[in-house]
Structures are given as C-alpha cells and as structure tokens.
Amino acid sequence: MSALASGPARMGSRRPRAALSLRRVLPVVLGTALLIWVLLPLVPVALWSVAGEWRAPAVLPEAWSSQALTTLVSPEVLQAGLRSAALGLGVAVTGTVLGALAAFGLRQLPRTQARILGFILLAPLAIPPFALVMGANVLLLSARVPTFAAVLIVLTVTALPYTAYMFHVALASYDWRFEEVARTLGASPTRVLLSVRMALLAPAIARAGFLAFLVGWSDYITTVLIGGGQLRTLPMLLGSAASTTGGEQLTAALSLAMIAPPVILLILLARWGQRGRSPQ
C-alpha cells in the first residue's frame, strides 16, 4: 500500500485568474442566450397587441392603441372564446373520466391483457392528427353526428393517451394501504372513494384535466377539417388572422387571448398544488 500513500500528485491544481474569469463569463452568456430564446418570440406578440402604427424599420411601435385588445370583447370573439372553452372543458371532463376509468381497469387486469389495452390507448399518439380526423370525418358525417359533438369525440380520442398515462403513473406510486386504513377506521367504500382516493389522486386529476383542456382549447386542425369553418372557435379566428397580411394587431391580440386562460389555469393549479405540500 505504500504506492497509495505516495501516489500521483494532487489533482485539480488552482487555475490562473484569466481562466477563472472565463469560467464566470460563460454561464452568464449561456444564461442570457437561453433567456432570449425563451422570451424573444413573445415580445412582438406583446408589442403588436397594443401597437397602433408600427412600420418598419421602427423597433418600437410609433403609436399605441387599445383597438386590437378591444376587439377581443366583441361578440364574435367572445362567442368564439366560449366555444373554445366549452370544447376545452368538454374534452377535459370526458378525457379525464374515461382515462381514469381505463387506468383503474388496466391495473386490475392480467398483465398481458393490460398491456394490449394500454397499447391500444396509446395508439392515437402514433397517428398524425390530420390523418385521424380525415378518416374519422367520413364515419362521423355518415352517422350524422353534430359538428360540435364530432369534434369533441375526435379530440377526446386524441387526449385519452395523455390522461390514461397520467393516471397510470399516479397509480403506480399510489399506496392502496391508505384505503385499507380508511376502511379499518370505519369509512364506507363510497366514502373511501370520495375522501381518500379522489383526494390523494387530486394532483393527477388536475394534471390530466389540464392537458385534456389544452387539447380542446387549442385545437385547430380537427375543428377545421370536421367543422369546415362552421364551428368558429378562437383558433379559427387566429388562424385566419395569422394567414392574412396586415393582421398583425389582431393576430397578437388573439394570441394573448389564447395564451392567457391556460396560463392562468396553470398558475392556479400550481398554487393549489403547493398548498397541500409540507414546507420543505
């Protein structure tokens, strides 16, 4: 062991000052670059939404205007917003309920059956959405399903892989002994379901519901292909504004209208999620 004690020379000798300054600068450069990457695309949206006149090469708008934002409260935009919200909530409810039921069912099934069914539930992820909608459209039309319901059905299929997977993950770490404890403490099966299982799985329900809401709220391609322009949701308005030249203000304002509700929802969910956590 004498070789050990004498050993090679010490590692990590001290660096000269010049290298030290480079070591300090590099992270700052990378951080700034990443910050620009994340935020820059949102800056023109924010500026255009309140711009009156803004011709090139001006870096900032020459005149400010609240006109674009006022159009957001016009009846047409409000109705579109309501339709989008209804679609989002509809997909959230059906997608979350069906996904949760499926995940519970799969847990209790034999391994092979659960694998096959799980594979089927994930299959919509592999199908490009436009292809799914185009094929399903024919069936839904011939079955005379109303447009809104048809869009809702297809979007629920799109959302199911996410919700089912969320519940699958949550159940994998779910400790069933909580329910056993509750039963020995005198809770009825219904009470256990409501006060224990639902409460413990609340974060998963919130996550799955949020994802499914996003699927419905922000959908463009399904609504276009099935609705054929009849079902005018917010993305429809935004799509036509963004593909028109000179529609910058409206594009920006509608973009904000589409971003705000999910972001607010996310913040509320995060707040609510933190409340239950122990201060660590």
């Binding site: 050990l4 050993g7 090679p8 590692m11 990590g12």
Partner: peptide, 23 residues
Amino acid sequence: FAARMAGRTKAEARRQAREYLEL
C-alpha cells in the same frame, strides 16, 4: 472519476482506482 476529470488517461485512472478498491 476524479482522475479522469483531472485529465488522466482511462487506463491510468483505472489502475489507480483499482488500488483504492483493494483498500
């Protein structure tokens, strides 16, 4: 790991590491 981070060759770092594993 430490020897590798200090720029030693893989062979040398491993040879030294084995001594410490013996230890």
